[in-house]
Design a protein around this nucleic acid. Structure first.
Length: 480
RNA sequence: CGGGGUGUGGCGCAGUUGGUAGCGCGCGACGUUUGGGACGUCGAUGCCGCAGGUUCGAAUCCUGUCACUCCGACCA
């Protein structure tokens, strides 16, 4: 156990100082580095590879559902941004402005996109003329800029990477169906690929996206009991279409407005992965997005035949489509174990002379540290089975944390008591629908409304804040 | 935007009553090692955040400033 002390010295213990633990992992797992611009981080190859894997999976799914990728400009003229009243009001405080081109002052300043609704609308106004042009299902992968005051790697940076889908539909029903469909895509991606349990819900009116009629979101509970909004999907109705004068001729030869959606998820998800699955040894990555799914550590690699066997093993796994690395650097095995644990590699295979003699290897799963001897026969299939077991194990572990931290409350006193007794977490409680009660709940207990879950439970008849008749069951939590 | 904290080699830190900078890790070379962060020898790396001031002399004292960071309020 003396060895463990050395590990603890490397990163802060998560239950001691979660914030420090988080930034330690971001740095020590080589995900990011800070740059000279506050809030603008360098996403290093290992971190970027996670994002690329996320992109690959989601992009394929978007395309299966008929979406096409497009690229919009980085700059938005001020006049364009101002076309939709609520939208500007929502984003104005945090946009970055470009005022000069070279040494010349621009006649109209331009903002660096904080989101691209306005650009899409301008474009849609030009290309949508007939019902035959609908639906339009566009998505773009890009960076956006929001000039945040306080920043944290992945969770809140001034520039971040994301995907924003923007779609136009002939009917409100179709647009609503799209909104919910994309929420489902995000939810299943989190639960299946990222092994992160989520709650699907609708934002309360005070918490909606600037300009949206309805905002749907998925909320995930992090290890420390705070909630992370992991992705959002908005239904816009025809508000933007009216503001941007987007019209088309319908089947009855009438000029009408189309209905719109937008949906997005960001590099913040990487923060979600860290805070959901990580432990005191470092990062724990879900196999689906891990840059390295299997790390092979040769033991006594200088000995006759070890490297040859390890290389052959690597090639077999790679041929089976597994992202695998064999580390034959001259670090000690112990160093390699610690290193790849820090980096969250889901499965480690140790291969030494004794193993080779017996036609086996040692397999260790990162999320629970379980060690087993595995036959080299059919190792590719075994590795895949183990990775699948890891995915399920990680999900169950995360779900158990959420269950343990989910409290049903009927009064604000119960909320305070629950948080004090068990720590931060999800509060399930009834709400009357008044914004004043959201504010008061937050002021008195610290938890805010995260969403109105799509799956409602009837926990009582009255609002836990004001005691008046309740309309909805709301999920409350402290949030990132 | 309010409240705290920290700035010294790549990282983590020490530096006493002011006297011109040190430790551990990491890095490079060579050798020995290798089943949980190996060891030895040699070596390289500092505008002590920045700008003023006090002083014969400042990492150290004073003033200002910037950056990072944490906790709140706001937001993906």
């Amino acid at each position: 156990m003396a060895k463990d002390k050395k590990l603890v010295e490397q990163i802060t213990a998560m239950d001691e100082d979660f914030a420090k633990w988080y930034t330690d992992i971001c740095k020590k797992a080589d995900l990011i580095d800070y740059s000279s611009v506050k809030g603008c981080m360098i996403i290093r190859p290992y971190g970027y590879a996670i994002w690329e894997n996320i992109q690959k999976i989601l992009d394929a799914r978007f395309k299966e559902l008929g979406h096409e990728n497009i690229y919009m400009p980085l700059f938005i003229p001020e006049s364009l941004l101002q076309r939709e009243k609520d939208h500007v009001a929502g984003f104005a405080p945090e946009v970055a402005w470009v005022t000069h081109g070279g040494s010349e002052r621009l006649t109209e300043r331009m903002c660096v996109r904080p989101t691209s609704e306005t650009l899409f609308c301008e474009h849609y106004a030009n290309i949508i003329n007939s019902y035959r042009d609908l639906p339009k299902l566009y998505n773009q992968w890009c960076n956006v800029v929001r000039w945040e005051k306080t920043t944290r790697p992945f969770l809140r940076s001034r520039e971040f990477l994301w995907q924003e889908g923007h779609t136009m539909h002939a009917t409100a029903e179709e647009a609503r169906a799209e909104t919910v469909q994309m929420l489902e895509v995000y939810a299943s991606f989190h639960e299946q690929e990222l092994a992160i349990p989520v709650v699907k819900g609708c934002k309360t009116p005070s918490d909606k996206f600037a300009g949206a009629e309805d905002t749907y979101a998925i909320e995930a509970l992090m290890h420390d009991g705070k909630s992370l909004q992991a992705a959002t999907s908005h239904y816009f109705g025809d508000g933007f279409a009216r503001a941007f004068d987007i019209t088309y001729t319908d089947r009855e030869n009438k000029l009408v407005h189309p209905f719109q959606t937008s949906w997005g998820c960001t590099t913040r998800m990487i923060g979600g992965i860290i805070m959901t699955h990580g432990d005191d040894r470092g990062l724990v990555l879900p196999p689906a997005v891990a840059p390295i799914q299997v790390i092979i550590v040769p033991i006594a690699q200088h000995k006759e035949g070890v490297l040859e066997h390890a290389t052959a093993l690597r090639d077999r796994l790679a041929a089976a489509g597994i992202r695998v690395k064999m580390d034959d650097s001259d670090q000690s095995p112990g160093w390699k174990f610690a290193e790849y644990e820090m980096k969250g590699v889901p499965l480690r295979i140790e291969l030494g002379p004794r193993d080779i003699e017996q036609g086996q290897c040692v397999a260790v799963t990162r999320h629970n540290g379980e060690k087993s001897f595995v036959s080299l026969e059919g190792i590719a299939d075994t590795a895949k089975e183990l990775l699948e077991a890891v995915r399920i194990g990680m999900y169950e572990k995360a779900l158990a944390n959420r269950e343990r931290r989910t409290y049903v409350c009927h009064t604000l006193d119960e909320v305070t008591a629950a948080l004090e007794a068990n720590g931060d977490g999800f509060i399930k409680g009834m709400w009357c629908g008044e914004e004043a009660c959201e504010d008061e709940t937050k002021a008195k207990t610290g938890v805010g409304s995260r969403c109105v879950p799509l799956v409602q439970e009837n926990l009582g008849e009255v609002c836990m804040c004001c005691g008046k008749p309740a309309k909805k069951m709301v999920l409350w939590a402290k949030a990132y």
